[in-house]
Design a protein around this nucleic acid. Structure first.
Length: 277
RNA sequence: ACGUCUGACCCGAC
């Protein structure tokens, strides 16, 4: 079975789906019935190809073909639907499948929620979140972060902040970055600095994302020297600047007429071996 | 075998 499955994987990665399906049939006939691993590979390939109807029927016919879809099968399917923008279908699957195990459920919920968040349907995220809780599915920090992001996007910063600071809410650096970015976007710079200090007092170390937001903010206020200070601090803290931070700072320098500084930073970036895009 | 959260710019659509 393993050998056949490897071949199957190869065929799928080459996009030879018709051959993959033939191989599955061959396996069934030659005494090496494909298991869920094999079917999941095929399902993944079909999803990437947009053949969702076929995935649906493979799952429906699974019992008659002697295999049982597992948590991952549905995760692949739901993930594929989301990536293809078929969020309503993904949502429907989620409703129908939440009983296959909490592990897949919360991961799959995260994918669907974050997809809705990306297209700005924040209310839907909140609905899914409350569905999860009602069903007794455990949320993880990423789930919370998606909810916080949605609240920020919807302009409900007050609510987002309350949530983050409420008891039993597990936060990490991403949570803070999300909230800080939310306050930056509505122009509440005081709150940004406040949160920045608060995260440090909670022993959550700012990362490159944090510093990027601060740099962008200071540049947008014309406070290039503060932006540079943040940049230097990030390096002092042992963070390696990436293309995004450099772009943010260089862009800010030039927009504010600090040509020398901009070129200096660009030089540093090139010296670090980063290729401008 | 799925591997889900946050940052700059650019581009496209409206």
């Amino acid at each position: 079975v393993c050998t056949y499955t490897s071949v199957l994987k190869g065929l799928c990665s080459l996009g030879r789906i018709a051959d993959a399906k033939k191989l599955i049939e061959l396996m069934r006939r030659c005494g090496c019935p494909p298991n869920s691993v094999a079917y999941n590979i095929l399902i993944d390939a079909l999803c990437k190809n947009g053949n969702f109807d076929e995935v649906d029927s493979i799952l429906k016919e699974s019992e008659s073909k002697g295999w049982k879809p597992n948590a991952i099968s549905y995760h692949i399917y739901i993930n594929g639907l989301c990536k293809a923008g078929k969020l309503e279908d993904a949502y429907r699957q989620l409703e129908q499948r939440f009983d296959v195990g909490w592990d897949v459920s919360f991961r799959s919920y995260n994918i669907v929620m974050s997809s809705f968040c990306k297209i700005g349907r924040c209310l839907m995220v909140l609905k899914l979140f409350s569905d999860m809780l009602k069903k007794g599915i455990d949320a993880d920090t990423r789930t919370y972060n998606i909810v916080v992001h949605s609240l920020c996007k919807a302009g409900k910063l007050r609510k987002a902040k309350c949530m983050v600071h409420s008891r039993g809410f597990s936060v990490n650096v991403v949570t803070y970055n999300t909230l800080i970015n939310g306050y930056y976007r509505i122009g509440n710079y005081l709150e940004v600095e406040h949160l920045y200090h608060r995260m440090k007092s909670e022993k959550i170390k700012p990362d490159i994302f944090t510093y990027t937001i601060l740099i962008v903010m200071f540049c947008s206020q014309g406070r290039v020297s503060m932006a540079k200070y943040c940049f230097d601090e990030s390096i002092r803290k042992g963070l390696l600047p990436d293309l995004v931070v450099y772009s943010a700072l260089i862009n800010g320098c030039f927009k504010n007429g600090e040509l020398h500084l901009g070129l200096e930073v660009l030089d540093r970036m090139l010296g670090q071996g980063l290729i401008p895009n």
